[in-house]
C-alpha cells in the first residue's frame, strides 16, 4: 500500500498532518506523541517581526467547536531561526513553514530568508487568518491578489508551495484557481470561519477583537464542501482540514478530493487523534483494496 502524497517537488510519507496554529513548532506535542509517524507538521504561523498576539481572552468554546483569536502570536524570524528552526530540522517528519505577513513584500522577504535554512520541507502561505487587521484574509479573498502573490513567491523556492485558503468567500474554487494560475503546488483548506459570541451579561463580544476564527467539529461539513469545490476547480493537490476528529472524517475529505489532511482542534481533545486517524485510513484502504490515496478520488 502506498501512503505517500506528492505535492510539487516534495513527497510526504503519509497524508496525516497536524494543522498550523494548533501544534506550535512541534516541541510541546513532541513530548506526547511519536512525531516520526506524522505525514507533516504544519508549523505555527511565522512573521518577519515578533508578534505578541491579540488581547485576551483569546478563545471560547462554542457548540462542537471553539473560537480563537490568537493573532499570529509568534517569536518572529530572528528568534525562530535561533530557537525553533533547529528543532524542526531534527524533527523526524516533514516540517511545513506557515508564512504570514501584513503586505506582499513581507511574505516575499520571509520566504527568501527561510530559504537560507534547511529545516523544512515546504511552505504553507497563510492568506486566510481572520484574526489580524492587515494581511491574512485581505489577501485570501481576492483572486487577483492571490495569483499575484503566488506568482511572486513561486520563483523564490523549489520547495512545495501551498496556499492556505479561507472559506470566508463566495466561491473558494475561484481562489484556488488563482493560486494554481500563480504556480502553487497545492492548496490547503479550510482556515477558520469568522464567528462571534456575545456575552449578554456584559453586552459585549467575549473575544475583545469582536470576531474570531471558528474551528472544530462544527465546521467539518463546510470544510468537506470547500475541498470538494476546490477539487472540482483545480488539478493541483488539495490538503483538507476542518473538524477532523476520526478516520471517518478524514476519509470524507479524501473522498471529496483531498490528497492529504490536517488534524487541528482535535489535538486539544486528544493528542492521540492524528495517529488514530492514520491507522483508520490504512484500515479503510485495506478493507476496500485501495492501493494508493488516488483510489479515494472520483467516486462521485
Amino acid at each position: 500500500m502506498d501512503l505517500t502524497v506528492t505535492i510539487g517537488n516534495g513527497i510526504l510519507p503519509n497524508p496525516v498532518g497536524v494543522a498550523s496554529g494548533t501544534f506550535g513548532f512541534g516541541e510541546e506535542y513532541g513530548r506526547l506523541m511519536d512525531l516520526s509517524r506524522l505525514g507533516a507538521v504544519y508549523a505555527k504561523a511565522l512573521t518577519l517581526e515578533p508578534r505578541p498576539g491579540n488581547d485576551t481572552p483569546r478563545m471560547v468554546e462554542t457548540p462542537a467547536g471553539m473560537l480563537n483569536s490568537i493573532g499570529l502570536a509568534n517569536p518572529g524570524w530572528e528568534r525562530f531561526r535561533e530557537e525553533k528552526a533547529p528543532f524542526l530540522k531534527e524533527m523526524p517528519c516533514p516540517a511545513v513553514l506557515n508564512i504570514g505577513g501584513k503586505k506582499e513584500s513581507d511574505y516575499l522577504e520571509l520566504v527568501q530568508k527561510c530559504e537560507e535554512l534547511d529545516c523544512h520541507w515546504g511552505y504553507e502561505i497563510n492568506i486566510s487568518c481572520p484574526n489580524v487587521k492587515a494581511g491574512g484574509l485581505a489577501f485570501g479573498t481576492d483572486p487577483k491578489q492571490v495569483e499575484t502573490l503566488t506568482k511572486k513567491l513561486r520563483p523564490l523556492t523549489r520547495k512545495p508551495l501551498i496556499m492556505k485558503l479561507t472559506p470566508n468567500v463566495t466561491d473558494i474554487g475561484e481562489i484556488a484557481k488563482a493560486a494554481e494560475a500563480g504556480g502553487a503546488d497545492g492548496v490547503s483548506a479550510i482556515n477558520t470561519l469568522k464567528g462571534m459570541v456575545i456575552d449578554t451579561k456584559n453586552r459585549r463580544p467575549v473575544i475583545p477583537a469582536g470576531t474570531a476564527g471558528l474551528s472544530g467539529a462544527a465546521v467539518r461539513p463546510v470544510g468537506v464542501a470547500s475541498v470538494y469545490r476546490i477539487a472540482q476547480s483545480v488539478s493541483i493537490p488539495v490538503i483538507g482540514l476542518g473538524g477532523i476528529f476520526t478516520a471517518d472524517h478524514a476519509i470524507q475529505y479524501l473522498l471529496a478530493g483531498a490528497s492529504a489532511i490536517q488534524v487541528g482542534t482535535a489535538l486539544f481533545v486528544d493528542p492521540r487523534i492524528p495517529l488514530q486517524v492514520l491507522e483508520g485510513i490504512v484500515s479503510y484502504m485495506e478493507a476496500n483494496d485501495f492501493n494508493s490515496l488516488k483510489d479515494f478520488h472520483g467516486h462521485f
Partner: peptide
Amino acid sequence: EVMACGIGACQGCAIPVTLPQ
C-alpha cells in the same frame, strides 16, 4: 484562564504581563 491545548502550543490561554513580551 480558558485553555485549549494545556501544554504551551496554542497560545490560547495567554494573559497580559508587564514584561516586554
